[in-house]
Amino acid sequence: MSDRRELVVSWLLPLARLAVAGVLIYAGLQKLPNIRAFAEIIGNFKMLRAESGQLLAVILPWCEVTTGLFLLCGLWLRAAGLMSLLMFCAFTTATGSLLARGLKTECGCFGTDSIVDWRTLAIDLAGVVAATAIIWMTSVRRRLEV
């Protein structure tokens, strides 16, 4: 059983890490050149006060890039997994809220790209699953190493 687990973890963990790191770094880098536009998109979500929205617009892209780099380098994996889980949970909540309110506005997920729809929610949920898998697999790996 532990051999099987070891095999699954040794294959799936790097895959999940690379996938989540790739998505986060790409998303962060797409937002960084135009933080103002991203702040406007956050404003269109009508979920946060202007000040909080602006602070989020400034910090979130860097959070994505930093977390992505930690995941890519395999440093502080469980903490980076937790951070990505928090971000994807927030994205899922925001997307779900927009869809529930029927607001058709830009997503801002990868810069100023597309309108929020069910695919956006699916991507966010996939992110939640992948981040949870990273945390779980890192914990399993630790237990196996002990």
Binding site: A37, A39, G43, N44, A50, Q54, A57, V58
Partner: peptide
């Protein structure tokens, strides 16, 4: 720079 503490900054709710 994005004016973080401004209530009328870019993240202010607009009538988009």
């Amino acid at each position: 720079p994005v004016p973080i503490w401004s209530a009328t900054g870019p993240a202010a709710w607009r009538d988009a």
